[in-house]
Amino acid sequence: MLFEALLIALWAGIAGVDLFNVQLHIHRPVVTGLVVGAILGDIETGLITGATLELVWMGMVPLAGAQPPNVVIGGIIGTAFAILSGNDPKMAVGIAVPFAIAVQGAITLLFTIYSPVMHKADKYAEDGNTKAIERINYLGMTMLFLFYAIIAFLPVFFGAEYASSVVEKMPQFLIDGLSVAGGMMPAIGFAMLLKIMLKKEYVAFLLVGFLVVTYFDLTLVGTAILGLAIALYDFYKGKGNDDGGPKPKKEVMTNGI
């Protein structure tokens, strides 16, 4: 288990840096699920749990600097827990989210601790010391790497054997209940997206997307293309109006009934 835990720690460190820097988004649960699954030898469970966690975190993005529950640790610990305990991926969500909230608290602390360093940076800047400014940035990333690596290592290494025994001791209704809650949790992410994006004029498109999937089982790619079709129509129609172009009236259409 030590070797696997070390690999997961290494991955968590890289993913933790990626959350804020470079941002290739290899830190998203849909990716970390695959990687953690590969490390622990169960790619399929990894993919499924990662995808389930991805949907939970869908709307939980860093808007205007406000930090949501930590997606890196949530994805990694959630997937590791699902594989090691052999439980339903949805139940892993019930475990991962509270854990991720606690970790985000620690990250907040880290960002606070780094504030005084800025006064040092002021001094270096005044002296025109470019090397020192670079060092301060590299140090910040090193701290993040170590933090994430340690946070991911501990529960995987020490908790691995206990993970299954803890689950065994839990009453069945609690396990099933966490599973139900895990299934409901994507609603939080979607509600957060709606809170920011939804305006009266957009309700129609939300309903269209909802209805085509509910009744016609349209895939997500299909739904996105449908949305794109509407958006393109709207975009060029709007452009035409702005120009006050040569075709101002559409009444002609009514003649063609």
């Binding site: 299934g183 409901m184 498109f205 939300l206 958006a231």
Partner: peptide, 17 residues
């Protein structure tokens, strides 16, 4: 518009309740 259409679809497909 694209975003909300997709969110509508996501609500329909990925919340199990």
């Amino acid at each position: 518009i694209v975003g909300l259409t997709v969110v509508g679809g996501l609500i329909a497909s990925y919340i199990s309740l």
